[in-house]
Write a protein that binds this DNA or RNA. Structure first.
Lengths: 223, 223
DNA sequence: TAGATTGTTAATCGATTAACAATC
DNA sequence: TAGATTGTTAATCGATTAACAATC
């Protein structure tokens, strides 16, 4: 039953769900017990029907004339996204990006707790980053097993990404959060989510190119 | 004319375009002059028609029986994405994430050159990160003007994001690459591209929750 | 020519928006 | 009751896929 609900939630809806949290927390702090879809939609710049569909898809219903119960909404979204049940994770690659992620306090509120980092550089072994130990990569499989780690965060150079992913999968990792520029191949039961900076940069710079061209064109016509 | 082509390219296509580059470079290195859409599609796990549509949308056509000219393809994509014309950028926020981005060598091949970082912490002023100076934020507007900087990369804490974005816009920045968790509001002629880690993490963890629930359910049925 | 490959037009699919009925 | 708000069904829109004609 539960899985059926899960399956029906679209990718777009899942990506929007975290956006609701800050405004719901604010409403809770303001002592409001319910909130209308119109209010949420306005704050987020969405259509009211889209808001109701998003919430309906994770099983939360409102009440006519009243709106949606704030507390239930918060709990429902947290439960759906697994924020109520914190997962431990290892970072592989203790460079600047790995350190940045290890040092970011916000992930724990999103159900993710980074508990250690791994690297190949011996000068880093034994150090602590934001209170988390840096260990040698060869110890990764043993520690994954012992600590029941399910998530690995990849922040190694792109060239090493596939090899490191293979190690992680072999060690029993179930999900990879891939921050490298490389596309990695894994067995189909393994979850891979990629943060694709090149794609994001492509959107930004193609827009910049396009507005620059438009400006040039206007200028030429005026001369 | 050019703008019309630009406008018709979909968001999904733009995000896919960077993926073509590595395989085209490999084909070039292997001395191949042309490449079929079937070959590209297979490497990327896409449909062949989708590949042809992606390329057609940025104005590149193939030849029946031969495929697409590799060199033209590379040049066409680079031109469309502005990779042939490197833009200088400033990073605001010289924390770990800012340092990671400043130290990443790959952006220059993608048309982005980070030339300096800004921060509020006086102990960082005058230091260099990957050869780029860290300067005090109060000097940002002057330097943006003097160096004709168009892009600012935001890596400050979420709470400071809007204030810093306002400063950047006021200084004449035309595009913001927002790595903070905050949604920022800017005038409509300013380009904002956000790297939304919370959305990405939501996809990862909701999938993890969903497979865990499915496993639990199967186990219950067996008992 | 024959056959491989491109390019176009139509069909499908999924997400969003519009219209409106149901409910408190 | 009247009116605000939700929830559902239909329409629209955009992206992807399928079918097939055009080309070298």
């Amino acid at each position: 039953m539960e899985e059926i609900i899960q399956e029906s939630v679209s990718y777009s809806t899942i990506r929007r769900l975290p956006l609701y949290m800050p405004l719901l927390k604010a409403a809770l702090d303001a002592g409001e017990q319910s909130i209308s879809s119109a209010k949420m939609a306005e704050t987020l710049g969405l259509d009211t029907v889209l808001v109701r569909k998003d919430l309906a898809s994770i099983g939360i219903t409102g009440q006519a004339r009243l709106g949606f119960p704030v507390r239930e909404l918060i709990e429902g979204i947290e439960r759906f996204l697994g924020w109520d049940n914190i997962s431990d994770a290892f970072v592989i690659g203790a460079g600047n990006l790995g350190r940045a992620l290890a040092g970011y306090a916000g992930f724990e509120a999103h159900g993710l707790k980074i508990v250690g980092l791994f690297d190949n550089d011996p000068t880093k072994f034994g150090k602590f980053i934001a209170g988390k130990p840096v260990m040698e990569l060869s110890k990764f499989p043993h520690l994954v097993h012992r600590m029941h780690i399910q998530i690995a965060i990849l922040t190694v150079p792109g060239i090493d990404a596939q090899a490191v992913a293979d190690v992680a999968v072999e060690a029993g990792i179930r999900a990879l959060w891939n921050f490298t520029p490389a596309k990695i191949t894994v067995p189909e039961n393994i979850i891979v989510e990629r943060v694709d900076l090149a794609a994001s940069l492509a959107v930004l710079s193609s827009r910049l190119v396009s507005t620059a061209r438009a400006a040039e064109y206007r200028q030429q016509k005026n001369l």
